[in-house]
Design a binder for these strands. Structure first.
Lengths: 158, 158
DNA sequence: TATTGTTATACTCTATAACTATA
DNA sequence: TATAGTTATAGAGTATAACAATA
């Protein structure tokens, strides 16, 4: 079960970490980490009322996009190993957001399937995340935010 | 002591996670995480021969940029709490890269000071990181990489 | 024998707080 | 009483591998 230990990252240490030097080969990594942390914190906060966390959301997102998936497929499509996926799907089942369905052809497989409630909650979470994202990128114009996403996609080769 | 458990991230699960949908409010976070993970993995690999890890490097970077710092200052200038800083400085001392010096005015303070060896190793690590960074951003032109850093800086307001 | 999913275990990292030594 | 640093402890997250059930 999710533990709602979200909203960490706001311990006393949140003063003002120094900005990495422009030319340092380490600068990009630091910037990426801090940018990610900011977005992740915004998202954790947005997800608090829903009782699940980012990793659950990521699985819901894949299910929404691709329909029922075996846990093996979820492993391939997320950044989690099979043991973590088991626990995430456990949580989603417990919350009534997804269920494990039998697959006629192969009785080893579990077709992880979003429930109607899951689809509803996912849509709500999506709406709840929008203002959080807007806030996390408030220093950028919408065009700059798109450009940032474009460059990240290019960097990742996708 | 660093455990060189770096170079994780290359477990069996590294197939091809799906690309997040263009318009999703969750896309930016996922892209930032994957981009960070790629850069972090490149850096972990580059640091392997040195026997320390990213968090040690970050402290060395601050010491290089700002001279001797108390552990309290290191807490403020990094993303670590004071207990973590203690262990990082322990590691750096053990490796002969930094030392805790007494501060004349206040005997509670420890001036964490880079050794000559530490400066030498830091310079080496910096050089070792450059090809790793180049590889991590191989899909971007140098101008795009600069633009990416610029946008991240703007997003973070620094 | 290989694969899917589950369970159990260990390990890393972080967070917390108790503790000391100074101030 | 407050601060700097240390130490000890507990927690979350992940990784690993042993295991059960299929194929």
């Amino acid at each position: 079960m999710p533990t709602n230990a979200a909203s960490a990252g706001q311990t006393a240490a949140s003063e003002t970490p120094e900005s990495p030097q422009e030319g340092s080969p380490f600068a990009l990594g630091l910037l990426l980490r801090r940018a990610h942390d900011r977005v992740a914190a915004a998202m954790d906060e947005a997800l608090l009322p829903f009782g699940f966390e980012r990793r659950h959301l990521m699985v819901l997102m894949r299910l929404q996009a691709a329909g029922p998936l075996s846990q093996r497929e979820l492993v391939a499509q997320t950044d989690h190993d099979k043991a973590s996926i088991v626990r995430i799907v456990d949580d989603l089942e417990r919350l009534g957001l997804a269920s494990r369905e039998l697959v006629p052809g192969d009785r080893r497989l579990r077709a992880v399937t979003m429930t109607d409630h899951g689809r509803d909650i996912y849509a709500q979470a999506r709406r709840a995340a929008e203002p959080a994202m807007t806030e996390a990128t408030e220093n950028l114009t919408p065009a700059q935010t798109r450009q940032l996403q474009h460059l990240l996609r290019a960097m990742l080769g996708s």
